[in-house]
């Protein structure tokens, strides 16, 4: 049995003195919680709760075991936090917005050339900002605009975008007018709601319908485009074609505020190198 999981049920029922309320607090239905407590009672060989007309009460054994169970849960949580945050000293935890797509390998190569030792996390902007706030990342390149209050945010970089059909259309073929362009395949809106909405408004401004397909991974976005059902916004003019007034990808570097930064990372130099690699 998953001891920690069942201890969590024990803890919740002891706190709420009610199986239904405990289940609600755990975000579950009541039957698995009741069964879980029964299994725990079998495993421990002790009755933990009385159930009678007055509700649910701890038994003497339950009362004696509860503090130990809670200590175990606290320790487990601490273990996860520590494991999550541990890193070799000096190694930078770098977050990169997944919209940077094909640019990411070159960006990391440029950082390596400048002696920046980093472990990359590629994700959506909302998650990256949360990661920097929660001390899971030391620095991140995120989409602008985003809510970045409480963090240090650098200047906005505008990276030109191009429209790419990933089918076998000849490169010199004439582009259809924007209103006839198929939906644009983009990362999911929840990655960066404000920036996503801004893109849709810009597409509509250009005469496009504003229809988009939200696809979670680069390979999925490429697949949609290859199937001829969507076009992609790309950052290189090799695979994409320039469209006047197509909005750029706007990104910026965010870090914790100086007092919240890791002592073993030289953030000033790091920021300078990342900004240089972006421009």
């Amino acid at each position: 049995m998953d001891l920690l999981r069942h201890l969590r049920f024990f803890d919740a029922v002891a706190e709420h003195r009610h199986f239904g309320h405990a289940a609600a607090a755990l975000g579950m239905t009541q039957p698995p919680v009741s069964q879980g407590v029964q299994r725990l009672e079998q495993e421990l060989g002790q009755r933990l709760f009385f159930r009678d007309a007055r509700g649910v009460r701890l038994t003497e054994a339950g009362g004696a075991l509860l503090p130990v169970a809670r200590r175990l849960l606290r320790d487990a949580e601490q273990l996860m936090t520590l494991a999550h945050r541990w890193r070799p000293s000096g190694q930078v935890r770098l977050g990169l917005a997944d919209d940077l797509e094909d640019k990411i390998p070159a960006l990391l190569t440029r950082l390596a050339e400048r002696d920046v030792d980093c472990v990359p996390t590629v994700s959506g902007t909302v998650e990256l900002v949360e990661g920097v706030r929660e001390d899971e990342l030391d620095i991140a390149v995120v989409r602008h605009p985003a809510v970045v209050d409480g963090l240090a945010a650098g200047p906005v970089h505008t990276l030109a975008t191009y429209l790419a059909w990933d089918d076998d259309r000849p490169r010199d073929a004439e582009l259809p007018p924007m209103r006839e362009v198929p939906p644009v395949v983009v990362p999911p809106r929840r990655h960066h709601p404000a920036a996503h909405d801004q893109l849709i408004d810009a597409l509509r401004r250009l005469g496009h319908s504003g229809a988009v397909i939200e696809a979670g991974t680069l390979i999925e976005r490429q697949a949609w485009a290859s199937a001829g059902h969507g076009v992609r916004l790309v950052l290189d003019d090799e695979s994409g074609r320039p469209i006047p007034d197509l909005p750029p990808l706007r990104v910026r570097v965010v870090t914790p505020l100086p007092p919240d930064r890791r002592a073993d990372v030289d953030h000033e130099t790091l920021i300078r190198r990342l900004e240089a690699a972006l421009s």
């Binding site: 985003a146 970045v148 404000a194 909405d197 801004q198």
Partner: peptide, 12 residues
């Protein structure tokens, strides 16, 4: 409220 977007018109 304070929005991330700077545009004047933001119906959303």
């Amino acid at each position: 409220t304070k929005s991330a977007r700077p545009e004047t018109h933001q119906p959303r």
